[in-house]
Design a protein around this nucleic acid. Structure first.
Lengths: 339, 339
DNA sequence: CTGAAAGCGCTTACAG
DNA sequence: CTGAAAGCGCTTACAG
């Protein structure tokens, strides 16, 4: 293993000079710098990360704490992960990816052992167990997902309430007066996935204001249950002209359900979903949708985290950054047809 | 920050004794051990990872190098990732997740800086650029995906050739005599995704041996293209009674295609896919399929990597572990109907 | 069974 | 502009 001592010897300078020549933290004569750089190149020197971390109390690593539930759509998580790791690397950080079930104790362990400079928590729930250890951790954190209590945290999420309103408004403006919303399963909500109710509540309120009927259903998270749920919904409410989907499985199953009922979108039914672009593309979902903006959220979270790590961010101002929803129109919304 | 010095002081022993009491690397009197353990608990001591790594040349971290292509089905990657991180943690390792485009230089950087004890390479291609730096790295590695040259590497993959044969055999045994195979796009193959041709070539050879006609198509990796591809295939070969899918997008699109043609499986068409169980479940794919065994592969790779790290594995014997394919029957295969 | 000391490979005040 | 030295927090021979 080649150390900075080897570099120093090869360059004919002291170890401190070699170190300074590489960090640029004090002025160095041009030819010493050149000699050091040459030595580095020749010997193939790379600083030892552990030694540097020990000396500087900086690891240049962030931890990414995933949180996976069986009844949630896991593949969507990959977009967040990639958005974060890629942005982190661009900012000079590697990413320790943690998927332990017990995220709280994982956070404590990693924080206490000083393995990382900061944390990104994914899929944060209403009363997330990881928040308390994060609060007392020596390293800063950024949340992806809005918890009930945001005080003291930097939070990044899609504005699900605005998304609910937007869906209703758009269909109302086109003339729809009876809509149905299919949410994630109710247990997602119960264990703290408050985004489900944030969207649903806001949609309901906006529907009330606008005089639109809105039926609400907690759909299953997989097949074949969700297919049956959709059929039952359409059977029960034949006058529904617009469908709002906050449930990936429902979006994936709907094309088949529509086809088997001889329905087409938007002719018979307008549809607006809420899922990632990437998801839509992969599964060829033909529905207009509000992008969940996974990679953008990840990017923002990392950028803010790094500004906290480096001390650029204002120490006592926390941000709650809710991304405004945008409907990506794929042609599944239109005025209701007169039957 | 509480250090082992604090623990030693609180326990009234030397730092070395405290260290040994915790590691158990030499015999310690019962009451000293108790005092040290009490001090650890009281002070909340956790060893500093960087310091330990510096002293022991062990980080207890493995690097997981992802490799993502636009034309591949990225969400499937998550299963591998979770299989690996979970198994690694169970064995005492954290996972540095790396998604840089330039995996070769990432590997070099991470290896040279001694950030990890070993590497798992995901989605290894025929002539993977990461293999050369891995070969010269100071740390061992395990490959998920079979490259052209396996010498000197531990390799884990599904046995795609056996999968191709199995698909053909199963349908032949049921009486099918004209089949079609839909592979990933040809450019997946061109940039080194040799599993595509391993499956296709083996299927073709087996079909020849058995006197079965086998049409082969490189399908698109997304909608709407793959839908058109499937329609075109069925138009061109109306006598095909069995469909083999080595293409996730095709599997996702097929239900819609069948429905719009008024076809049902297995009555009109037997179908066997090759994708993960998890994928099938999430998208409610009703097709019998060979599980790609993502988490099992990840698990095996990590276990073997760890045995290399700890020196348990035989230093000069390398393993190429190809998991035998198994058809998970979901009822989409039957004898061909006489039309 | 226990302690004092060296050393892992860096960085960074302290001196000049 | 440069060097000698201390220190980051561990582990582990070396002595007793």
């Amino acid at each position: 293993m080649v150390t900075i001592g080897d570099v120093a010897r090869a360059a004919g300078v002291s170890r401190s000079t070699a170190s300074y020549a590489l960090s640029g933290k004090r002025s160095i004569s041009a030819d010493v710098r050149r000699k050091v750089e040459d030595a580095v190149r020749e010997l193939g020197y790379t600083p030892n990360a552990g030694a540097r971390a020990l000396a500087t109390s900086r690891t240049n690593v962030i931890a990414l704490l995933g949180q996976f539930f069986d009844d949630e759509f896991a593949p969507a998580m990959l977009q967040y992960i990639l958005g974060i790791t890629n942005r982190a690397r661009a900012l000079g950080y590697d990413t320790l990816f943690v998927s332990e079930d017990d995220g709280a104790s994982a956070l404590r362990r990693i924080s206490d052992s000083r393995m990382v400079d900061g944390f990104v928590l994914l899929n944060v729930s209403e009363r997330d167990e990881r928040l308390e250890p994060l609060r007392t951790a020596a390293q800063p954190g950024a949340l992806v997902g809005l918890p009930g209590e945001t005080d003291g945290f930097d939070v990044f999420d899609l504005d699900f309430a605005a998304a609910g309103r937007l869906m209703v408004e758009r269909l109302h403006d086109l003339g729809h007066r009876e809509l149905a919303l299919v949410s994630q399963p109710e247990h997602v909500l119960e264990r703290g996935g408050a985004y489900v109710s944030r969207l649903a509540d806001a949609a309901r309120d906006r529907a009330d204001e606008l005089g639109v009927r809105l039926h609400h259903l907690f759909g299953a998270s997989g097949q074949p249950e969700i297919g049956r749920d959709l059929h039952a919904l359409l059977d029960a409410h034949p006058d529904v002209t617009g469908l709002l989907l906050n449930n990936e499985a429902a979006a994936a199953a709907l094309p088949t359900v529509l086809q088997s009922r001889g329905l087409a979108s938007p002719d018979d039914l307008s549809v607006i979903g809420r899922y990632s672009d990437d998801f839509a593309r992969t599964f060829s979902l033909p529905f207009s949708a509000i992008d969940s903006a996974a990679d953008e959220l990840g990017r923002r979270a990392v950028e803010h985290l790094v500004s906290r790590i480096t001390g650029t961010a204002d120490a006592d101002t926390y941000v709650v950054d809710l991304i405004a929803p945008v409907i990506d129109d794929r042609g599944s919304i239109a005025a209701p047809s007169r039957k």
